[in-house]
Design a protein around this nucleic acid. Structure first.
Lengths: 231, 231
DNA sequence: CAAAATAGAGAGCACTGCTCTTGACGAATG
DNA sequence: CATTCGTCAAGAGCAGTGCTCTCTATTTTG
């Protein structure tokens, strides 16, 4: 039935255009984006938007999902195109990819990692895409350990924390020592902090050379983790 | 003229109550707080609020300023009540104080460190209060260096970044080596990341023992900086 | 071709920030 | 003491928001 599929195709294109316009509005208006404004931009009346999008929150959720996917793709691509044994190179590549994505998509980054909207609860489908960047980072440590390129730091974790991390390791990286996982999460936390500080203006009038500062800070975390320096 | 001052006092009390009600609303409604709702809670009509508060953004700015002051007070108090030579103890105390304040004031924390509202530009008076926590942290390093308790790490900063940090050091901590300042800022970035991840739900279903996890991560950064461990 | 599904338009409800006008009250002054 | 004057609160109103409902026109389907 090509008749039905032409309808469906037009409909899908409409939804895509709504998302594109919404993304554009996001850049200027932030999280408080207006369906009416999107409708105006498309030459529609506001109520017609609801034929394609169930609600404003659903539209935001769709944008969030696509943003997570975009960030995850960028991060994993950067990791994949670096030589596996070059742990430090991979670490830097992944961090830079995340930062580059954030700088080119500041509104989406704020949507993902800014303050959560009080009423809004993240749907179940966002939790897995959200884990791709940290999983990529820790994956570098797993590979390094498997290839004998990493020394496992002493495990001085208090017992309950050790148990939490052991459970987390079992779920994603079976056999990964908790002390290493803890350092990987420290690196992920730092990466988020670095990007957020830069994007949210905390470095204004302070750090002019953002690229070099970022690389240096990322390198500090690589030191903390124990990623071997190239000769 | 006591007549005029009784007017002024009642007026000040009104403004204080408006702020208090607004703070309460903040906890449930987040940054999109409604002046009309505040007015309703006070038994006023919405337009009457504008006798005391110029606009919604001004009210938010006032709350932000008070929040920065509260956090700064908590952080500096924790630092001041720890023995000066116990660098690691001070580091942990300051970080814990910041986290405790954030946990007891989650909405205010989100206001300070969440995604910035697109239209809203932070007024000039917020920049100094905002620097109190990082200055307190780096102050620990300055003291440790002055007392000969810290070894200065090798300075492998690229020249432009070194210049940025040198200028920053000159402004607040004359003579502080840039390599140390960079590590201090790494610690501050990590502290922000740790608190944000915990408050914004990124640790849900992952880390159950938040206190121990936080302390361990803070300790990792103390290691990176080179704060001496107690015997 | 008739019936059913769909798209768009318009009106309307409850809410928001904010402005302007009007009436009332208290305080300072002639 | 009586009269201005400044302040306060209230109400109406404007432009905007998310969202729902109804009505009409068009398109797809049986």
């Amino acid at each position: 039935m090509p008749a039905s599929s032409i309808r469906a195709r037009v409909r899908a294109e409409m939804i895509d255009e709504i998302k594109a316009v919404a993304r554009r509005h996001l850049a200027t208006d932030g999280a408080n984006l207006s369906l009416r404004a999107v409708a105006r931009d498309m030459g529609m009346v506001s109520s017609a938007i609801y034929r394609y999008v169930p609600s404003r929150d659903d539209l935001l959720t769709a944008l969030i999902l696509e943003a997570y996917d975009g960030l995850g793709d960028a991060v994993e691509a950067a990791d994949g195109s670096t030589e596996r044994h070059d742990l430090r190179g991979r670490w830097h590549a992944v961090c830079r990819a995340a930062r580059d994505w954030a700088i080119t998509h500041p509104a989406e980054y704020a949507l993902l990692y800014g303050s959560p909207v009080p009423g809004y609860a993240a749907p179940e489908d966002t939790v897995l895409p959200a884990q791709r960047p940290p999983l990529t980072l820790v994956g570098i440590l797993r590979d390094g350990l498997a290839d004998g390129l990493l020394t496992v730091p002493a495990d001085d974790l208090p017992e309950p924390v050790h148990a939490d991390l052991a459970e987390l390791a079992d779920a994603f990286f079976p056999g990964l020592p908790t002390a290493l996982l803890a350092r990987g999460m420290a690196g992920w936390t730092q990466l988020f902090g670095l990007i957020s500080f830069e994007l949210f203006g905390r470095l204004n009038q302070t750090i002019a050379h953002r690229d070099g500062y970022f690389d240096h800070q990322v390198g500090l975390m690589a030191d903390l983790i124990g990623l071997p320096r190239p000769e």
